[in-house]
């Protein structure tokens, strides 16, 4: 599936606008059969903003405006090009979203390991463990070391103190627990 998604993205990038329109219809039908929630993309306001710029405004300002619709002059060539651009964006965004949903953390870990990052898994695991505690500890250290005067006088020193409290030290209470786990 991931190779097929890659091929779809590549085709959307390479193919000319008129072919991308046809491709996007087929691809979106297949994608929605795989994961219907991909259609939530059309709930986003940004998609309609994009549509307004590339499909509505573009034909009115780019190319030869020889065609007319409701009294508005527009370029048919720019309209097709704009539709192609919009369809291409939809296909690429949907493809990446689908790929993201179907990729597990294990796949990502294996991917980086294959590229030579032996320690990725360990660092990721430790960082994940620290993430919930770090916010609590951060607030604790900040309250212990902070007065408005200290912050204004030397913000670098205060920030350093906060970060330093988490770093590896032989007698660090926070990291000692992690050290034991490594051993």
């Amino acid at each position: 599936m991931k190779y097929l998604i890659g091929l779809v993205v590549l085709s959307a990038i390479i193919l000319p606008a008129k072919f991308v329109i046809a491709l996007s219809i087929i691809v979106m039908i297949i994608y929605t059969r795989v994961d219907i929630s991909l259609l939530r993309l059309f709930r986003r306001k940004s998609i309609y903003f994009l549509f307004t710029i590339v499909v509505i405004l573009q034909p009115m300002i780019i190319g030869e405006q020889v065609n007319q619709f409701l009294g508005i002059n527009y370029s048919a060539e720019a309209l097709i090009n704009g539709l192609g651009m919009f369809c291409r964006a939809i296909v690429i965004i949907s493809s990446i979203t689908l790929l993201n949903r179907r990729t597990s953390r294990e796949n990502i870990k294996a991917f980086w390991k294959r590229r030579g990052l032996e320690e990725f898994d360990n660092v990721m695991h430790k960082a994940e463990e620290m993430l919930p505690n770090i916010k609590l500890e951060f607030n604790k250290v900040r309250i212990e070391n902070t007065s408005i005067r200290t912050i204004l006088k030397n913000p670098a020193e205060l920030t350093a103190k906060i970060i330093y409290s988490f770093l590896h030290k032989p007698n660090n209470l926070i990291t000692n627990k992690l050290n034991e786990e490594i051993k």
């Binding site: 030579g116 032996e118 320690e119 660092v123 430790k126 960082a127 770090i134 990291t175 992690l178 050290n179």
Partner: peptide, 20 residues
Amino acid sequence: LKIEKLSESNLINTAVFAAV
């Protein structure tokens, strides 16, 4: 991206900055 096996302190310090 060949990165050698990390020492204990490098591993934890990298994890700290990554978590922050």
